[in-house]
Amino acid sequence: MKKICIAQAGRFLLGIAEHDIIGRMSWAEAASLFKQDSKIVQLSALFAQQPGGEPQPDAICLEMRGKDESFFLVADQLIADEVEVINPPGPLPPVCPRLAARLCPQVTIWGDSAVLLLNPAQIIPVADELGNGIGRLAAAEETLIAEQNREADLFGYPSDDASDLPESEESIFSETELVESVIDIEQPQGVAPTEAFFKEKMDDEPLGNFSESEESIFTETELESEELDEPVADDIQDTSTEESSEPTSEQERKETVASIDEETFKKVMTWTIACFKQSKTEGEEPHLSMEQLPPDLAKMVQQKGLSENIIQYLIDQIVLRCQESAGRRMPGEQHAG
């Protein structure tokens, strides 16, 4: 007998065949696992023909089998699991809209409710057909916006400034604000700031749209030959800064630099902020280290050959920034740079 799980998406009650589901997790867990190109569909938004919005923290994320690759479905909640379909499913009544019949060709009864049986194979094609971002969630952007919003709630900064802007402008503003604030602290002291450079870049391209060749926001040098007690900020410099400050060593450095790509940067930032908030809730001072990174993230860092020192420095700087924002910075505490 066919087993389904029953999920609620908006006001829609959906049955999803268990054998189509690879895995399930909460939205909070899943958000950090998405890749940049992950296909994520928010069912309530798709069915309401609206662009995806921020899922509730208790939303459920299902990894589904796709034709070529897996994709993710986000539902508001899981109502029941491992439900055996007793009533034989029947076709949707002919009055039903064509698109509804494509997404849910069959319907069954569970308790006293009609349950639409989802055809996962049609989710992505229908979302593509509808276009305009309907039903789609962008993995990294969405995570970042969510984190920014939570951070703004926690620390009471700057989304108020953007409250009068239309929604789309507000999102871009918020992203820029957040990234700039982190970039700002990456500037080594005494070196000409490159904020203008980044601001210009942000104005041109929303976050997440950098091409591969333009991703070198931060560069790292090999630290093995350098003293570890040196301010690591010296090793995290924008190349445009180096041009003006140390033109003679530029060639040497260019040969050894490796970049922290944007995906890693965002994931580390997301994780660090989450840990910071967690420790704040528990009333503890955060002591975050590279070793505490989630296994998948640590693996990613390792695979990309990124220096542990650089990642640790990034973590420290984000924590510091969070502390500053929270007004928790102790008197006399020095900026790590």
Binding site: F12, V95, P97, R98, V107, L116
Partner: peptide
């Protein structure tokens, strides 16, 4: 108990068991 249908016109309220 009416369960709504996606993409339905306003006169089609949904499905009912």
């Amino acid at each position: 108990e009416v369960r709504p249908l996606p993409f339905a016109p306003d006169w089609l309220l949904g499905l009912c068991a």
